[in-house]
Design a protein around this nucleic acid. Structure first.
Lengths: 219, 219
DNA sequence: GTGTATATCTCGGGG
DNA sequence: CCCCGAGGTATACAC
């Protein structure tokens, strides 16, 4: 990783056009060739960036970064204040706990916590517009499509609605109903769900994890 | 901005739990107190981060970053390889051209490029679930709601559908129809739009910009 | 503050 | 390669 602090202007042209007036910034060049330009505020987003793979041409005080997609980033440096390189090696990567995938795994193992008598038919049931999180059958034998979210918002209701439309085109599943299962569901999502005869169920993630016999903690 | 290269482990606890095994990484502390931890690959996202405002406690080789929302990031350093501080000053910020806002401004000035005879009634017409980009009337006097996107995808059709449902509850607008206007529209979005009697119109941004008398180039 | 939409979203997975 | 969905999304803006 190369770290350069320089007074510079930057021009990006690609998915849109963008320009940075002259100021002092950090220019980060990583081992994979990607480039990010950071100001001294805002943790997350660089002001400008180019993802790998890139071609970087250094010509005096002008750096030109291009990528196969036709995007182009030009950094014009007027004053170089720091320039250092560091060998970091590869990163083992982030280990996460508590994302939607875990919630889906737990609910697939314990569908009865969504609704009494609910039985799993298939996880990630495929439709031609994407996979439904859980396809189940309820105590009466009726098919139930379950969309799982950490946060239940309008988008989740729209998504489940699209899936239900598709699933219902299969004659054997034409009376499928929908459930939105989430750790918390916003009033707007509840309202839209109600208008579309979709049930809402809130899930207690910690209680659910307590049902797992082995308590598979990641760290 | 302070730049530290160190061999470290990192633990985050907050909206989820996350852990980084020991490796060498860049730790960036910006003037506003935010912290980002970068590996040597991937331009955009830090592995872990804490947005300002933060409280940072340095205790020997352990840094503890906490924020008012109860999130907590702990960096345990086993080897310090680089530590430098740099005065960057404030950044004038990024100037952009070609985002959706510009497209909306241009189309508001030239609604006839969307459809012959179309006349603007109101930009950002408010509904109780959000603003419609353009509300217009067509040559026959019928109301038309226009949703503008740079890229026309399914979400845009869903969004316009929700607005149309709301707008039609107003008796004076009950026969409003919808147009999705975008620089490019995906087949999936076209299919969904067709199923909902929403028209699709592709927009040539450069040609549209050429219609502006003053050619308001930003840089 | 909540609610909504945008983003050069990024990133990863599946066909 | 495209398509789709998740994200500690972040970020801006209106109410």
């Amino acid at each position: 990783m190369r770290l350069v602090i320089a007074r510079c202007t930057v021009d990006y042209s690609g998915r849109l056009d963008a320009h940075l007036p002259e100021a002092t910034r950090l220019i980060m060049v990583k081992a994979d060739g990607c480039v990010a330009i950071h100001a001294d505020g805002g943790a997350y987003k660089p002001l400008n960036w180019m993802n790998a793979p890139n071609r970087l041409i250094e010509q005096d005080n002008v750096w030109e970064v291009t990528n196969p997609g036709g995007e182009r980033l030009v950094i014009t440096m007027t004053e170089l204040l720091h320039d250092s390189a560091h060998e970091l090696g590869s990163d083992p990567g982030l280990v996460k706990d508590g994302v939607e995938k875990h919630l889906q795994e737990l609910l697939a193992d314990h569908p009865e916590t969504i609704e009494e008598g609910l039985v799993l038919v298939r996880r990630e049931h495929a439709t031609d517009i994407g996979p439904v999180d859980l396809l189940c059958r309820d105590a009466s034998g009726q098919a139930v499509a379950v969309e799982i979210k950490r946060k239940g918002e309008i988008d989740g209701v729209e998504q489940l609605t699209r899936y239900l439309d598709r699933i219902r085109q299969d004659p054997s599943l034409k009376d499928v109903r929908g459930i939105l299962a989430a750790q918390a569901i916003k009033p707007q999502a509840r309202a839209l769900a109600a208008a579309r005869d979709i049930d809402c169920v809130t899930i207690d993630y910690d209680a659910l994890r307590g049902l797992e016999p082995t308590e598979p903690r990641l760290f």
